[in-house]
Amino acid sequence: MKAINEAENISSRIRKDRVFLGLVVFFSVITVSPIILIISKLIEKGYKQLSFGFLVEKTPDTMEAMTAIANNELIPGGIVNGILGTLLMVAMAAVIAIPIAIITGVYLYENQGKWLANITRNVSDILQGVPSIVLGLISYLWVVKYVTNGFSALAGSVSLAIMMLPMIVRSTEETLKMIPQTLKEAGLALGIPYWRVLTGILIPTGFSGLMTGILLAVSRVIGETAPLMLTALGSRAINMNISKPTSAIPLLIWEFYNDPNMVDMIWSSSLLLMIIVLAFNLTAKQFAANRK
């Protein structure tokens, strides 16, 4: 009698196990399906427009687009003004944010448990939660009104740099914390001054970790639209002057969205933006993998 009960028990356990496995697979599929759907939609709708010209020509105006659509042709032109603007602003934001964030991260790592470090860490965490449009507003107040006296790439970069700061600060601190303490001690035990231990041993050892943080921060701000609307504004022309209004890929997508004739450009621009962000993400993953 007991044996039979046990056999039933086991078969019911196997059944439960299968149901559970099924659920796990089901929810995993649900989790990954949005990204697959997004990418397939972008490719389906955007690939036609995506050509070499798209990468090297400026944004067309509404009339050109309208004419092209009337003749059943592809909209001429491209988004090179956006591509270059994004490159300019993100590069400048990185140049501003990386040194500040890494120095802050080192400070936090070296002063675990001290009140000023704790406050800094908390404030940095709060900064990470500040809505990006608010950062745009702040940069508008600081840079657009007082520094460049008008919408500018610099103002856009400042708002993006503020977004990048807390991400890089955190990743720097976490990366350094993962480096064995004895490595630092070994350096100091050789009579090497602290700053050289830091630059010659700790930072090279944590290089992959730092790069991962930086690349993820970059890929995060590349797609930012809201803060740029209030700071860089956008431009139909190629602009490399940091004190002048500048375009960016996400800004262009927003502009295309507001212009019924440009709808087709939305998809190709989004596809390109997605490819760039994915490339940064995958590179970051590669660095993270190298760490092990």
Partner: peptide, 8 residues
């Protein structure tokens, strides 16, 4: 050589 190199 790290002790020498990193000590400049």
């Amino acid at each position: 050589i790290a002790g020498y190199k990193l000590n400049g």
